[in-house]
Design a protein around this nucleic acid. Structure first.
Length: 803
DNA sequence: GAGTTTGAAACT
DNA sequence: CAGTTTCAAACTC
């Protein structure tokens, strides 16, 4: 007798038998994430960040003149167009549905020298924000002078029209320093971002003298595509809004302390745009990397909007502040964290205005430490140095949400975030751009001109940084490719620009960025100065999200935030984020491994140990060097060591697959020892895992019941569900379609889709009814039983309880 | 809570 | 690649 009859099989989903899907998954996704025709397993791996759905372009036009640019952008290169908004009177901002990920808005104060560029800078007007449309409720970031109003525009074209009309709903006024973003399409849903008045701020006293001081403070705007709203985790002054779920958009608006009156305000907005949305024609890589605005650069690579004001001097100075935000798997989350300086009391105390964006599920949490300005976004600037560019890199993750991480550096160093293509990991490199002097403004067009690579240029003040915006897929390759996708090449227009390279100590790691633990942020090693990387587990991010007010002390690498245990995680094991969140990871108990082996779940998940019971733990920032080495070692051993083992099956399937399969021998894959079982995987990809459960249509005869090839007698050939032993599988040769259905036996049953597994499992010695009992109400089970009964009229009834 | 079992990871 | 050892979690008592 053999396996399931055709009839029975017909009931079963095909994909179950398919074992290849997992392996086939190409790790390197094609540059264009644009359309993934297939929800291949890889992409579907829950762990991966979701690919943004559609990208929309935001066009910011300072003037009617600028409108022209916008059109050109939208038409020719919908993908990215950086926008810079000069501080000039009003800047209409149009958001088009097109792709351009990055917006750069610089409402520079008149005082700011750099802000000379006005309309020209605006060129990159089009910004694509897929989620914008979803914006329903206007939000204001903070009160005070600065306001940003975002209006959706139905189409980029509409924006033009609106501009031409001269009555652009979006107006940025310097005096008010308001940014109005209006989506053209939807009149009713403007988004207004207001920056708190400096005057309101407790810290104002310092800069009280500045007339300019009222000027805008930092502003963080996130445009997320998702409809869902996420409350902004309490950050003091910060507000976060997510417009689009799918696309991550992080807008950092750093406002600097009023100390410098004239300093321009910087907004940094980083959007991640789905590659999918991008038209193939557009050279723009699907992934948007964060950018820093430079005043000079007329055309900025799209996708990031930086609004920054150099005003605040104090912010950077905060030593020791480290914020690592690693985007976790949770789709469409944007996390912005600003480190609050312990010193500045008043500033933080300033009212925090959470901004809820109806659209976005993304959450931005920002804490700012800056003394004066209550509202501060992650940007930290050294007083001496004008600006610390904060770079956020959006991850163009294949499937899921992408993270954006904004890390304010306490120290001068600039933060560069790196997206790893296709991976959920976000890396940030902190670069100390000490050379304020060198800050020559970015070579305007020239720098931006690079189509292939999208460098991030930070022109603010002295420091400039260029970070290539690389589509997630191409991230690994630093060298520019002739690829159509532009982003890959990193161009450093300025000497200060730096390629994202691994710190000296661990050059080898670089190639494996993609494999780094999820949510990893590369930050300067504590002792390493500029060079080193610190790998910050996603944990921090989640912690931050959960406890918005947590401040990271610079000195202590790791805040022992007691309460935060749940780590934002990738939807591990195919579990939904909600599921995972509901299940905080268990604290590890490692004693000998120093939590630097994959034995340690924390480490294996790319997380720092937090509230664990481990001894001699090195899985923390304080031992970043060791940790990096350990990571490297693991990656050397297995490049996919940190990749999720459990992924979804084919598209639409709820099945989970284990990429490798277990090696269970004694547990029958029915214990939590089994990774598959533990992960509720019922489709095991491994050819030789412990048990193979099949449904047999028995003959009713005694004797050998299982596969003839196995040569092993089993039980009576009564049909039913059996589990082939490992040996059987190997001998039988037929078992390559391994099905691990163990979880069906108990825990996962309720969740099973009706189409369920064709095979239900029991150990071969177990009678069916023991299985069926818990499934009595399962239609699929009844169906199978019915089939078996028909085929085996002489079956013992107890084996197949009546449906 | 101590001891055992188990399988993944690490090691040889 | 196979066999062994180490490790931490799961499990049992």
């Amino acid at each position: 007798m053999d396996v399931v009859s055709p009839e029975l099989n017909s009931l079963l989903p095909d994909e179950i038998m398919d074992t290849e899907a997992i392996e086939d998954i190409p790790q390197s996704q094609p540059e264009s994430t644009t359309s993934q025709s297939e929800p291949s397993d890889d992409t579907s791996v829950p762990m991966e960040t979701d690919t943004p759905m559609a990208s929309e372009n935001l066009g910011l036009c300072s003037d009617a003149t600028s409108t022209e640019h916008t059109q050109a952008l939208t038409t020719s290169t919908a993908t990215d167009s950086p926008l810079s908004i000069s501080p000039g009177s009003r800047l209409p901002i149009s958001v088009s549905s097109t792709s351009s990920p990055i917006l750069t808005l610089k409402p520079a104060l008149a005082t700011s020298t750099a802000t000379t560029k006005t309309t020209d800078s605006v060129t990159g007007t089009s910004v694509t924000t897929s989620g914008l449309q979803k914006l329903t409720a206007p939000f204001t970031i903070s009160a005070a002078n600065h306001q940003i109003i975002l209006n959706k525009v139905a189409s980029s074209q509409a924006t033009e029209a609106a501009k031409s009309a001269g009555t652009t709903p979006q107006v940025i006024k310097q005096e008010g320093q308001k940014l109005l973003l209006t989506t053209i399409g939807k009149s009713g849903q403007p988004i207004v971002l207001q920056l708190p008045h400096t005057g309101n701020k407790p810290g104002i006293s310092q800069t009280a003298g500045d007339a300019k001081s009222p000027a805008p403070q930092f502003k963080v705007v996130t445009i997320g595509g998702r409809p869902e709203l996420k409350p902004v985790v309490g950050s003091v002054g910060n507000q976060v809004t997510t417009l689009q779920a799918q696309q991550l958009k992080t807008v950092q608006i750093a406002k600097k302390t009023p100390a410098s009156s004239a300093a321009p305000i910087k907004f940094i907005i980083t959007k991640t745009v789905n590659s999918k949305s991008l038209s193939p024609q557009t050279s723009v890589p699907p992934v948007i990397a964060g950018r820093v605005l430079t005043q000079t650069s007329p055309v900025i690579p799209p996708r990031t909007i930086n609004l920054s004001e150099p005003h605040n001097t104090s912010i950077q100075s905060l030593p020791g502040k480290k914020i690592a935000i690693s985007p976790l798997k949770t789709p469409s989350k944007v996390t912005v964290v600003s480190v609050a300086s312990p010193t500045s009391n008043a500033a933080q105390k300033s009212v925090a205005l959470p901004v809820n964006v109806a659209l976005g599920q993304q959450i931005l949490t920002v804490q700012q430490s800056t003394s004066a300005s209550p509202v501060k976004v992650a940007t930290s600037q050294s007083a001496a140095q004008n600006i610390k560019p904060v770079q956020s890199v959006a991850v163009g993750g294949v499937g899921g949400s992408q993270f954006k991480t904004i890390i304010p550096l306490a120290t001068q160093p600039n933060v560069q975030q790196i997206q790893v293509p296709g991976s959920r990991f976000h890396y940030v490199r902190l670069v100390t751009a000490t050379t304020a002097s060198s800050t020559g403004q970015p070579s305007g067009p020239s720098t931006s001109s690079i189509q292939t690579a999208k460098p991030m240029v930070v022109s603010t003040g002295a420091v400039r940084m260029s970070v290539p915006i690389v589509p997630p897929q191409t991230m690994k390759q630093v060298a520019p490719k002739p690829l159509t996708s532009a982003a890959q090449v990193v161009t450093t227009t300025q000497t200060q620009q730096r390629l994202i390279m691994p710190a000296t100590p661990l050059p080898q790691i670089q190639p494996n960025f993609t494999n780094l633990p999820p949510g990893t942020v590369l930050a300067p090693a504590p002792g390493g100065g500029n060079v080193g990387y610190a790998v910050v587990p996603a944990q921090y991010v989640t912690q931050l999200q959960q406890s918005p007010f947590v401040t990271l002390a610079s000195s202590s690498g790791f805040p022992a935030s007691a309460g935060i245990q749940t780590q934002a995680r990738l939807p591990l094991n195919g579990l939904s984020a909600a599921e995972t969140t509901s299940r905080p990871r268990k604290p590890c108990n490692c004693t000998k491994s120093q939590c630097l082996k994959l034995y340690c779940d924390c480490f294996a998940n790319g997380e720092f140990c937090n509230n664990c019971n481990c001894n001699n733990c090195f899985n923390n920032l304080e031992h970043e060097t060791e940790r990096l080495k350990a990571i490297k070692t693991c990656l050397d051993r297995n490049p996919e060591a940190f990749k999720p083992k459990i992924g979804k099956g084919k598209e639409g399937e709820s099945d989970r697959r284990h990429s490798k399969g277990c090696n269970c021998k004694r547990s029958g894959c029915l214990k939590n020892y089994c990774e598959c079982y533990e992960a509720a995987v019922y489709v095991c990809n491994k050819g030789g895992f412990g048990s193979d459960v099949r449904v047999f249509a028995g003959t009713g005869q005694k004797g050998r019941t299982d596969s003839p090839a196995s040569g092993r007698g089993r039980e009576d050939d009564l049909g039913g569900v059996r589990t082939l032993s490992h040996e059987d599988n190997q001998l039988g040769g037929e078992s390559q379609s391994r099905l691990c259905l163990y979880q069906l036996l108990g825990r996962a049953l309720p969740a099973l889709p009706p189409t369920l597994p064709r095979l239900w499992g029991l150990r071969h010695t177990t009678s069916l009814h023991s299985v069926s009992d818990p499934w009595g109400s399962c239609p699929a089970w009844k169906q199978v039983v019915s089939v078996i009964r028909r085929q085996n009229s002489n079956l013992e009834t107890d084996r197949f309880p009546p449906p």
